[in-house]
Design a binder for these strands. Structure first.
Lengths: 229, 229
DNA sequence: CATCATCCGTGATGACCGTCACAGATCGAT
DNA sequence: ATCGATCTGTGACGGTCATCACGGATGATG
């Protein structure tokens, strides 16, 4: 359980809690595993708690009746998911799946509520997380509204770089997550074929590159420029 | 100040607070007026507090560099706006304007923070509000991703009916807010001309009508059907 | 290493919808 | 009541981008 503790104390999303709170939360957490390719929950399901990612990554997406996907986010270790269910009793608003095996910590709604009643400061923390999500959502919507296809792809890469980027060298940012063109297309809201064309153009121009399958941003400015509204 | 009190206790957004909390908030509120056509704040401004609408209505929107607008919401009396600034210290993420004169109650960030420290239950309340906004944002993004133009217009009308609809008669819902086609277009993410074509088609089919300028939904199912994904 | 599944590149085609253009309608203001 | 300003209806045109089609690359798996 030490690892959960570590994450709760150190991660971006869960960090900043007073030690006694983190300890209290740790006691609530129920560790669990998720196999590759399985669904954690689907939009419309009743929400009975939330999860923290300990290891692996989860994809959060909206699905249309025809099976089209709008990828909202890919969450790595330290991120919370499904937290909305703790607030209102509403059903889950998105679908969450694991591509590769993942380890999670589950927080039961009832237990969490009881804990929060005694430690209401925890809400302040949740507010910051949910607020951040809202900002992100607005940002994505703005991109969708104002930017043409290449701009949306640029925006997508920049967002991914925020979550998974490692500045491997001065000015070069590696996106340390295995992405298919289809993934990028589903985030940017575009057809895979056109994403392919855009990415290749940028590769030829030296704006981006691929290092053993991982995308690498070579000229950040070019992308920022394409993504600016 | 009795009116503020009324709103805080009765409104959808602010209701449900324990009476002593509502009273405490009332003490914090600073009444203010906004003239027609003025900007309350713009995206990028530092956020120093939040506002509750007492009278009139505000439009929340994102603006592109070229002046295009993405209307996120129209808020009527009882709604909170600018609450994100209370959570993190981030700048405002959207622009809020008043078309017609409005009366507001302003909550200063510092004062609010101090109050919330003593009454942390208030955060639970904020969470429900922000969570609702996030759900809405995802919903709008899904519509943008999956629905063709007519579907997005239908969705927009249904959303507006949620905020401003009065069931004037069995099955007929009047949207009690003055909307131009341009407004609807800016919410739906479409060109005004095409919105015009869609609305007229629906008028001819008897799906909607206009009563002294206000739109009225005659056949809700038709719209729901068009907006379903 | 052979086979199958997925992923990727690229052309051709055309639909959807944004833009332009403009006339008629509506509404406030003087 | 009149004028200007804004809003609305409708046609024509063209661009962006989704879709289809398919061959080649890459990578998992027995």
């Amino acid at each position: 359980m030490a690892q959960i503790d570590d994450l709760l104390e150190n991660s971006f999303s869960l960090g900043g809690l007073a030690p006694d709170l983190a300890a209290g939360l740790e006691a609530l957490a129920r560790p669990m595993k998720l196999k590759a390719g399985t669904i954690l929950f689907e939009a419309g399901d009743p929400g009975n708690g939330c999860y923290a990612v300990l290891e692996g990554s989860l994809r959060v997406s909206l699905l249309s009746a025809e099976g089209d996907e709008q990828l909202l986010a890919v969450l790595g270790p330290g991120q919370l998911v499904g937290e909305m269910a703790l607030l209102d009793g509403q059903p889950r608003s998105a679908t969450v799946t694991a591509l590769k095996p993942a380890r999670l910590a589950f927080f039961d709604k009832q237990a969490f509520d009881r804990f929060a009643e005694d430690n209401p400061e925890i809400y302040r923390h949740m507010l910051r997380i949910v607020g951040g999500r809202l900002r992100l959502a607005n940002d994505v919507l703005a991109a969708r509204s104002f930017l043409p296809l290449p701009g949306r792809v640029a925006k997508t890469l920049l967002l991914l770089a925020d979550s998974f980027g490692k500045e491997v060298e001065k000015g070069r940012t590696l996106i340390h997550y295995k992405l298919s063109q289809a993934d990028i297309a589903n985030m940017a809201g575009a057809a895979r074929e056109n994403v392919s064309r855009v990415l290749n153009e940028w590769k030829r121009a030296g704006t981006i590159s691929q290092i053993s399958g991982y995308y690498c941003i070579e000229k950040m400015e070019k992308l920022e420029d394409a993504a600016s509204m």
